[in-house]
């Protein structure tokens, strides 16, 4: 008697668990993108520009539904190579695009659609009077850079080498937005970030231009993935990004023409 009781006690939650698992399984099946749903994996520096592009793309293509996953390019590559369901992959630099091409996860050639250069980000009004890269070497300044492992860090390192400036930052951030936060919150005096990042925070920071001959240009490219369930729609999206309208939106957010 007691035994049947205890097995009932166990059986009930077990049934619940199994039912839930069943539901989840069914749910994930029905969550598979319909033919007009488009999942785009895009580098996080594109967030503002691509949201605007997504809105216009949906208007121009009634019935399509664009969903974005914005993350650092490196993390996106990792997710993609682990089988994440992206129809379009957009990288912030050639290194990360090459990883996807090397793995054969692409369907067709990538399209280079924009460039981005670097700027010195300073507090609003530039209270420390930073006018060029050499000013950053001042020992009293708190300078923050991206780590060498991410595209913005590689860019900053190249720029400083080009300028012959040797400096010791207080921190190597793993994300470009981390550098931006440290400057906008007033904890750091300056950093080297993308022009688009300075533009994105508006009045919270100012930018000091870096001369073109010292600067680095990162190339943004987009590719349709091999596993895209709807490669025609995916290709339409990539074309839209490269179109005159897409380029106008990107330019408004500070991106360079390819």
């Amino acid at each position: 008697m007691r035994d049947s009781w205890s097995s009932a006690l166990v059986a009930a939650p077990l049934a619940v668990v199994l039912t839930t698992l069943g539901t989840v399984a069914c749910g994930s099946e029905s969550a598979q993108p319909s033919s007009d749903e488009l999942i785009v994996f895009a580098a996080s520096s594109l967030t503002e520009a691509f949201i605007a592009i997504g809105v216009e793309f949906e208007e121009a293509n009634p019935g399509t539904d664009v969903t974005f996953n914005f993350l650092g390019s490196t993390e996106l590559v990792a997710q993609l190579l682990q089988g994440a369901p992206a129809a379009v992959f957009v990288a912030a630099d050639d290194v990360n695009m090459a990883k996807v091409l090397d793995a054969g996860e692409n369907d067709g050639e990538p399209v280079v659609f924009a460039g981005n250069t670097f700027e010195i980000i300073v507090e609003p009004g530039n209270p420390q009077g930073i006018h060029d890269l050499a000013d950053l070497a001042d020992q009293d300044l708190i300078v923050v850079l991206c780590a060498d492992s991410v595209p913005c860090g590689r860019g900053a390192a190249t720029i400083l080498t080009n300028a012959g400036v040797d400096l010791t930052p207080k921190s190597f951030d793993e994300r470009v937005k981390g550098v931006v936060t440290k400057v906008t919150s007033g904890e750091a005096d300056a950093g080297i970030v993308y022009v688009t990042d300075v533009l994105a925070v508006g009045a919270a920071a100012d930018g000091v231009a870096i001369p073109a001959e010292l600067n680095v240009i990162n190339r943004y490219s987009a590719v349709v993935t091999r596993s895209a369930p709807n490669s025609a729609v995916a290709r339409t999206f990539v074309d839209f990004v490269a179109s005159a309208r897409g380029q106008a939106i990107l330019a408004a957010h500070g991106f360079l023409a390819p």
Binding site: V144, A147, K170, F172, D173, E174
Partner: peptide
């Protein structure tokens, strides 16, 4: 840690 103290 990485936000408040940074990474050096």
């Amino acid at each position: 840690t990485i936000t408040f103290a940074g990474n050096f």
